[in-house]
Design a protein around this nucleic acid. Structure first.
Lengths: 142, 142
DNA sequence: TTTAATGGTTCAATAGGTGAACTATTCACT
DNA sequence: AGTGAATAGTTCACCTATTGAACCATTAAA
């Protein structure tokens, strides 16, 4: 069936892209952070007073996995923990100054590389691509 | 810049899709194999007399990582190793009958789920999507 | 025939993940 | 007010995936 071939092509291509982004992050940017860690850091940066549970839900992983991730970022001095004064179970996460600096630098470098590749596409091409991907993601979310 | 937003949207969507495929594989199909393992198994199936080095190159990972992966599949009785008679350094990998059965079953189940989602797209939409992804992959490969 | 190079494995270390058990705290309700 | 359930987060034991260096066996090259 044709579906089979399309899925194969998708898998092969998406592997290449994902691997390439990881390598870019590793080589061109900073050696001392992984793609997963950067994703978490970035999430905390863009979501004010986020919590572990929220991140676990957003990333579809267990809370204990988030704790481990948070610890790694904390040990590197990139994020802070702050207990809620009213509900003392909750720990709010935020990015430190060092963390913000790190994100800014990393994004500039990452966008340099990606921007170069994306210049081979026209605007319409990019938009239909992203929209198709988002449509698929939305369908799969349920 | 607009690029920043596009990359964010891409990251969010691709995370959802990848996670969803993983979960489908885990829940609906077999509990006893991971997505990575299935990818390797599938590669061996579709590439005749493949070797560790070849897989390492195709997946962009080290040889030792492949050995570990191969061992897991071997322990489950899904693949076989066969030494080359002429050049005795080379070990050819092939999928066992049990492995082939496993792949067939898994693909049917996976395609059921994916097919249902993809029915919301028209042919043209799917093709431009895959082609854009492959174009990006190709650009990034260098 | 020494010396390279190649193919694969082993080993220690790190990251990422699961799921269950646990602590602390707040909520709900009779 | 007091007991039990729910919630937030951590810890623990265990597994998968990956790296990179050291290593063994084998073949190729000088």
């Amino acid at each position: 069936m044709e579906l089979k071939i399309l899925i194969d092509r998708y898998q092969t291509a998406i592997n290449t892209v994902t691997r390439s982004v990881n390598n870019t992050l590793k080589n061109k940017v900073h050696a001392d952070i992984t793609t997963d860690q950067f994703s978490t850091l970035h999430y905390i940066h863009t979501h004010d007073s986020s919590t572990s549970t929220e991140i676990a839900q957003a990333f579809g992983i267990g809370k204990s996995a988030v704790t481990a991730q948070i610890n790694r970022l904390f040990d590197k001095g990139l994020i802070e923990r702050k207990r809620d004064e009213k509900d003392r179970r909750i720990v709010y996460l935020s990015v430190t100054d060092k963390g913000v600096e790190f994100i800014d630098f990393t994004e500039v470098e990452l966008h340099k590389v990606l921007g170069k590749h994306l210049s081979h596409f026209d605007k319409h091409e990019i938009h239909t691509f992203i929209e198709a991907l988002e449509k698929l993601a939305k369908l799969m979310e349920e």
